[in-house]
């Protein structure tokens, strides 16, 4: 198999952009799992729901920017609602992990089918036209690298938020030791709500970018969830840099397989990577270190 330089640029470029979008979903998932211990199977739904809300609002004739803002606000509200209406009912129960896993699976079923009822099939968010440049002989729409840059910017923002702000530190304190955090006056219930909201917003933004570069469908959410779980587990639960690294790795593997082997093999390749990593290192690439 000979890979030309144009193809290589294409594969790596696409892989990194897709990887950074995936990183937003995965970081959202990882944040919620880290703080609340909820393996949120509905994580990808925040992306597809946000994307479809924007599609709907744009369809009603509302401008792109206000629609995006409304979509992201909706994602935050949806995140808080999921935590308040569903997840909070399971606090303190035995088998919390299992119960919340299946409950969030129920949310996925609901969301997927509501989207199917309301929007039917494939939709795209009309992205702004910001021109294109020529790289290695191929014309590249600037929207793609811009989407990647926005994703990276969000990740850096989250990193700063969790290291240097009160709320971010409180979040990490709750993740580390809930009782201890409670003792020094952190209102952990508020942190839980906020974490779900922020996790949903991060993933919601990935939905906006995904909807502009690719096509949204009611099942996009489940696919993104599967990617995100793979990434979090490959990267090691709780490791921020492990998650980013794994996102880029998965993005590249996906892009390479789709271009060189055929898109039917995408999931096969990704789950094969996951499988091999986990069999060799059951605690993930960077397990243990946080």
């Amino acid at each position: 198999m000979v890979v030309s330089i144009e193809q290589l640029v294409f594969i790596v470029g696409n892989g990194l952009i897709f990887g950074s979008i995936l990183a937003l979903v995965a970081v959202g998932l990882s944040l919620i799992f880290g703080v609340l211990d909820v393996p949120n199977f509905a994580q990808g739904e925040f992306a597809s729901v946000t994307g479809f809300v924007i599609v709907g609002l744009v369809g009603l004739g509302i401008g792109l920017v206000p629609s995006i803002i409304a979509g992201i606000v909706f994602a935050f509200v949806a995140g808080v609602a999921v935590e308040r209406l569903v997840i909070s009912k399971f606090y303190g129960r035995d088998e919390f992990l299992l119960l919340t896993f299946f409950a969030t699976f129920g949310i996925t079923i609901i969301s997927e089918n509501v989207l199917r009822q309301m929007f039917g099939g494939f939709r795209q968010i009309p992205g702004p036209d910001i021109g294109s440049i020529v790289v290695a002989g191929t014309s590249v729409n600037l929207l793609r690298p811009a989407a990647g840059a926005i994703a990276v910017g969000m990740l850096i923002g989250l990193y700063i938020f969790t290291r240097y702000t009160y709320m971010g530190l409180a979040m990490r304190a709750v993740a580390d030791d809930r009782r201890g955090a409670e003792m020094i006056g952190v209102n952990y219930e508020r942190i839980y709500m906020l974490t779900f909201g922020i996790g949903a917003v991060l993933t919601g933004i990935s939905g906006v970018l995904y909807g502009m570069l690719f096509t949204l469908s009611p099942t996009s959410g489940v696919a993104l969830t599967a990617f995100a779980f793979t990434i979090v587990v490959v990267g090691g639960v709780g490791s921020f840099f492990g998650t980013i690294l794994a996102s880029l790795l998965i993005g590249l593997v996906d892009s390479f397989t789709a271009t060189m082997v055929g898109s039917r093999w995408r999931f096969f390749a990704i789950f094969a990577v996951l499988f091999i990593v986990l069999v060799l290192r059951p605690e993930g690439l960077r397990g243990g270190s946080t």
Partner: peptide, 19 residues
Amino acid sequence: ATRASGIYLGIITLAFNEL
């Protein structure tokens, strides 16, 4: 797979299902 536990085992087996 059983060397892993919790959510890791869940994801390994889910991956096997998809594979």
